[in-house]
Design a protein around this nucleic acid. Structure first.
Length: 349
DNA sequence: CTCTGTTA
DNA sequence: TAACAGAGG
């Protein structure tokens, strides 16, 4: 999912020192983050964490510990949740639904034959982020004192808007769409632990946070954001998942460098005609549906008893562990207050 | 993904 | 102190 611009971005991306983000707000694409938790926080055979009623709790586990880790680094996470997807996304969403159905079938087969490796692989692929899960994640963050933002439409677009408006320092997501939506800075791999499992393997590799600045990218490529969007459309976005077959990032870049925009491209240069409405897709990236938050996005004091009630009593988390993490949370919040005092950015109340 | 206890 | 295995709910 998302646009694959890794080939174009590889030259200008750089390692991010987390100290650079101390005391600053970072918009987090909540869907992107929670989905990763759902896929990754599982037992060896792929069973997700669940409470006694059998409801999945992997997302709560991920949100809770990741958020405290970020706050301990002095980073203020602003989770941005998806609203209603644009109609043009229907095809992509349908594709994802089909993929999950396929994975579910394969999972059944793997279960029948008891192949544990495959069970885990296909379980991950069946991960579904429900509206309940999004609601529960927001609820937990509220008790933790961490603000959230409800996007009218695409969360990624809203997060990019907050960044463009200077409300956040950067936008964090694994997808490159943020760049198309107008984010100034994109952080990928915003994690503290630095370990990530390789797809389909039981091997862990070091992953470091990296920073991509839109201005550097456009300068390096000598193009405009509109042209970057055209490149993405040729390659394929969530609004035209197939793109133009046979055109990858490198070829798309050459075409746009030569012809400036999609409508100018010589038809003989394309392996197949363009059948999608590229003007409408462009519009979705250039003028996405976004909103200015009605209240300032500031941290507030955590409510330990509500966190305990929710995680321990309702979702069967280990009380000792949760209490320990709440202490870390409170300490981290105090330190952030100090950073703000020192840097004169105090907007606590 | 992240935490904790164990091992070298 | 760092690397690893196993568990978390």
């Amino acid at each position: 999912m998302g646009v694959d611009l890794s080939d174009l971005v590889s030259e200008i991306k750089r390692d991010l020192n987390l100290a650079e983000v101390r005391g600053k707000k970072v918009g987090i694409d909540a869907y992107n983050a929670i989905y990763q938790f759902l896929a990754a926080i599982r037992q060896y055979d792929g069973t997700p964490l669940m409470n006694r009623q059998g409801k999945v709790t992997s997302h709560l586990n991920g949100v809770f510990y990741r958020t405290v880790n970020l706050l301990e680094e002095g980073i203020i996470p602003i989770y941005v949740f998806d609203g209603k997807p644009p109609e043009l996304k229907a095809q992509e969403l349908e594709n994802r639904r089909k993929m999950k159905e396929e994975a579910e079938k394969k999972l059944e087969k793997a279960k029948e034959s008891g192949k544990v490796e495959e069970m885990r692989k296909y379980s991950q692929m069946t991960s579904r982020l429900t509206t309940d899960m999004a609601k529960e994640s927001k609820e937990l963050l509220e008790y933790m004192g961490v603000p959230t933002v409800q996007a009218p439409s695409e969360g990624e677009a809203e997060a990019a808007y907050l960044n463009a408006k200077g409300i956040t320092y950067a936008s964090a997501s694994q997808d490159y769409d943020s760049l198309l939506f107008g984010a100034e800075k994109l952080i990928r791999n915003l994690t503290i632990s630095g370990k990530r499992k390789l797809p389909n393997k039981d091997v862990y590799v070091e992953v470091k946070p990296e920073l991509i600045e839109t201005a550097s990218l456009l300068k390096k490529l000598e193009i405009t954001r509109e042209q970057l969007i055209d490149i993405a459309i040729l390659v394929g976005t969530d609004y035209n998942p197939d793109g133009v077959r046979g055109i990858g990032p490198k070829k798309a870049y050459k075409l746009i460098k030569t012809y400036k925009k999609i409508e100018n491209i010589d038809k003989r240069e394309l392996p197949e005609p363009i059948y999608f409405d590229y003007e409408k897709i462009r519009e979705l990236f250039l003028k996405p549906q976004v909103t200015l938050p009605s209240t300032p996005l500031e941290l507030s004091d955590p409510d330990p008893s509500k966190i305990i009630q929710f995680l321990v009593n309702e979702n069967d988390f280990n009380e000792e562990r949760v209490r320990g993490t709440i202490e870390r949370l409170q300490k981290a919040m105090k330190e952030i207050k100090d950073i703000k005092r020192q840097t004169g950015l105090d907007q606590w109340f």
